[in-house]
Nucleic acid binder design. Structure first.
Lengths: 356, 356
DNA sequence: GTGAAAGCGCTAACAG
DNA sequence: CTGTTAGCGCTTTCAC
């Protein structure tokens, strides 16, 4: 039947047996030339390779990983591919994985918990070597992940509370801190923190960092503008509320670049307001367009690629170590990229940071 | 040996046999409950399902697709995940695929031909149901694709010259045309087309469309500013050259939003130049931040999601039709989104388009 | 309906 | 080094 089918369809996907026959060797030798080249003598190896080429053979990975019990591709589930932060994470992870001869397949859960689970299951079913997960909602995630997943798994951008999984996170608190410090060092004393909702873990931590910086410097005051989300439009709303505010404001820490951009858009329309002279604004994330808006936005750069690399390292360790190791959480520090929205055109050196 | 290993590792991945034993049915029945539920009586079905749940069984897709000879996931290789256009394509494709019960796995070739090939091979080896490819370079691609790939394949964002593959493309010529028409209708007569290099297929076609529009209206002149790339920095360079130009310029068609933003940044620094009053600028791509810069950029919106959906439809047809059908190329038209960089704050209605 | 058995294409012992 | 063989976990006839 098999041969009949092959004949009928022409030449559909030759297999190792075909290659072996063509090369006049045993099937095991073909497997070896591919997986353990050192076990095959040069002439034989060349002959097999030639046959593979002649027949256009491509090894069936389903069969391979079924027989070998392991695969060399890892999957990553990203909450939002539209966010360059996550794209950076994927890039970093891929680079490291590649150095170890592994491949990265990406799934976009698009901020839908259902899709997240669905793709987790896809990777699970595919018996990938391991899974990287940038989860949607920490709490929902925790229970569900353990339910569906039995592959090695590393969390990215979320600190697991239990020691069930290894993870990589950015130090949000530190990010908020250096953002506020930057403004304070520029002489600003009446700060606003804008963003939200505050229940979001990341937002809350950034705010805590800001609070610490403010608390450290006497005479500095902080007011809060909570938004229902972190997009441009939310930023505009925040901007209007900042303008409406009674107190004089001279510095803003926005919880995201989009919020910062929205705020800047609104502030710039006020004829008597200049940025950064009157109000300096710091964003967060270093979204690729934060440097690209007409008033480049000073921002806290998430160490996306590094996080991806670190996550990949952890995952590889788990894969190798057979789950034995302790589940570490690596914390990476973001850094500040000064741009025009806080330092104006003062220092031309800031241009160098645009590519950071 | 198998049982020994299982005992040693605890309870690693139960299989269908385990489920069958647990449920007191034959292995084939387990398979049927999963794939042909109508062939199994209700009580049996429930019992099997319960066992699956109890054991935490997850079907091994490697084995499944090996046995069944087919998979239900398709892979897409994207040139650049950092570009929202491609992310949109992936989204569209995923939506359609999902409606057909299939999954989408994404690979990012990151503008490297080598990675593109590598991932093509990964998908090939995984024997995915089909492949969507947003290729890097058309010409290099053509020869290599046919070499490594034997799965159903549909090209996205590139029009295959031969009828070897089905494809989906945007009508670049039309995009250039409506961009120029827009400026002409606004009364602009001294236009500049900025972008490059002109060898790029898309750029050349956009330029051709611009030329046609210019040619249609007497008294309209066009000059060219060729850049070596399509980023912000290239846009800045272009902006400086536009300023330096002898002739009076009142309208610019930029070959990408990034170029447009760069140009705008430079022009806005000229004290005597207002946008759009003195110079109106149209971008291209509707990159998500074109609406988000402080001067929102009028742009030509690539029909990314539609392209993804169309590509997925074509691919599904190929998968079903066993490659028999003719290889169609679907052409989708981009549309113009008017924003402040050309129409100013004139029409508040343009705000509605920001989300388009 | 349900059960038994023959592979899917490949890897990994093991014998020669 | 090279050939043989026994599965990996699942789907799919084909009897019962």
């Amino acid at each position: 039947m098999t041969d009949a089918r092959k004949a009928r369809l022409g030449l559909p996907q030759p297999n190792m047996a075909d290659v072996a026959r063509h090369a006049g060797v045993a099937i095991g030798t073909v497997s070896n030339t591919l997986n353990n080249p050192e076990k095959v003598r040069e002439p034989t190896r060349r002959r097999v390779l030639a046959s593979i080429d002649a027949l256009g053979f491509v090894r069936n990975d389903a069969a391979r990983s079924l027989a070998a019990g392991s695969s060399d591709t890892v999957g990553i589930v990203l909450v939002d591919m539209g966010n360059s932060f996550f794209v950076d994470i994927a890039r970093g992870a891929e680079a490291t994985l590649r150095e170890h001869g592994m491949n990265l397949l990406i799934a976009n859960s698009d901020i839908e918990i259902e899709k997240q689970l669905s793709y987790l299951e896809v990777f699970e079913q595919a018996r990938v070597a391991g899974i990287l997960l940038a989860p949607l909602d920490p709490h929902i995630t925790k229970s569900l992940v353990s339910k569906a997943v039995s592959r090695p798994l590393v969390l990215v951008n979320y600190a697991p509370e239990d020691a069930q999984y290894a993870g990589v996170v950015a130090d949000e608190h530190h990010g908020g801190y250096i953002a506020a410090r930057h403004l304070i060092e520029l002489g600003r004393r009446n700060l606003v923190f804008a963003g939200g909702p505050f229940q979001l873990q990341a937002v809350a931590e950034r705010l805590a960092g800001v609070r610490r910086a403010v608390g450290e410097t006497a005479g500095t005051v902080l007011s809060l503008v909570e938004t229902t989300g972190m997009n441009i439009s939310h930023g505009r709303t925040a901007g209007e509320r900042i303008i409406a505010q009674e107190e004089h404001v001279d510095g803003v820490v926005a919880a995201s670049d989009l919020v910062a951009i929205g705020i800047i858009q609104v502030l710039e329309q006020q004829p008597d307001l200049r940025i950064p002279e009157d109000i300096a604004v710091v964003g967060y994330d270093n979204n690729h367009f934060a440097s690209e808006s007409t008033t480049p936005v000073t921002t806290i750069s998430q160490p996306g690629e590094e996080m991806g690399r670190a996550a990949a390292e952890l995952l590889i360790a788990e894969i190798r170590g057979d789950g034995g190791a302790e589940k570490r959480t690596v914390v990476l520090r973001p850094h500040l990229i000064p741009r025009r929205s806080t330092i104006g055109t003062a220092s031309p050196a800031d241009l160098q940071n645009h590519t950071a």
